[in-house]
């Protein structure tokens, strides 16, 4: 039996006229009436080795938590086996970025409580940590992606109290991204790949971010509940 638990989320996302929590929740409800059958039963078949990230805001927070799991693993390794040619300034700021990611990860974990996904195995093989270019390129890639993820997820929260929280974190990710880009290639806090001709950073859908993040996560995850 194929259950599409993402459909009610999609329904909301495509409505495009929601105005706040209340309207969103109303539309969720109204969508159920209009779609007559979009609201599905709670039974779900998840293979035993696959982790389900949850529904609604829980799924969204778990999604950000996943990103932070990758980032903390990345910077822990980058600090433990720093690249050749690391300057004193770079050493300090590399440790700072690790510590910021820990703060983000542990806060999200605390918020999630026992709904946090666990036993997630990350895969850092895209990076050669002894190599400066590889480390900084991947740091910039992950931070740029995190910015796009945080910017793209805010609109989906039912509890809008999370919007400001993710915004506070998003601009720090942007600081990280620009820093890694800039020490890799001077005078490039951004380029046309991440900031468009309207001066807007990227905002990516959770599904698009998960696709980009997949090489970094080994654990099988069921994230069909995330907005597309």
């Amino acid at each position: 039996m194929k259950l599409d638990l993402g459909s009610d989320n999609k329904q909301i996302a495509e409505t495009g006229v929601m105005h706040d929590v209340s309207r969103r929740r109303f539309l969720q409800f109204a969508g159920g009436i209009a779609g007559a059958g979009l609201i599905v039963s709670s039974c779900r078949k998840t293979p035993p080795d696959t982790q389900f990230i949850g529904r609604g805001d829980t799924a969204l927070i778990n999604y950000l938590y996943l990103i932070e799991l990758v980032l903390t693993a990345f910077y822990t390794q980058a600090n433990n086996t720093p690249y050749y040619g690391l300057t004193e300034s770079e050493l300090q700021l590399l440790a700072d970025m690790r510590d910021h990611e820990y703060a983000h990860r542990e806060l999200l974990k605390k918020i999630l409580g026992d709904t946090a996904i666990n036993r997630v195995v990350t895969n850092l093989s895209p990076t050669t940590f002894a190599d400066r270019t590889s480390t900084l390129t991947n740091s910039a890639f992950l931070e740029d992606l995190a910015v796009a993820a945080y910017n793209g997820v805010a609109q989906h929260f039912t509890d809008t109290g999370y919007v400001l929280l993710v915004a506070k974190m998003a601009t720090v990710k942007a600081r990280h991204a620009a820093y890694s880009r800039d020490i890799l290639t001077a005078n490039t806090p951004s380029d046309s790949g991440v900031v468009n001709n309207m001066g807007l950073d990227r905002a990516m859908s959770p599904q698009a971010v998960m696709a980009a993040l997949s090489p970094w996560i080994e654990t099988k995850l069921d994230y069909t509940t995330l907005p597309g």
Partner: peptide, 17 residues
């Protein structure tokens, strides 16, 4: 909302630079 966040993160890049 999304646009404002997209602008704010560009300001974050500027601040960092």
């Amino acid at each position: 909302l999304t646009s404002a966040m997209q602008i704010a993160s560009v300001e974050g890049r500027h601040a960092s630079f």
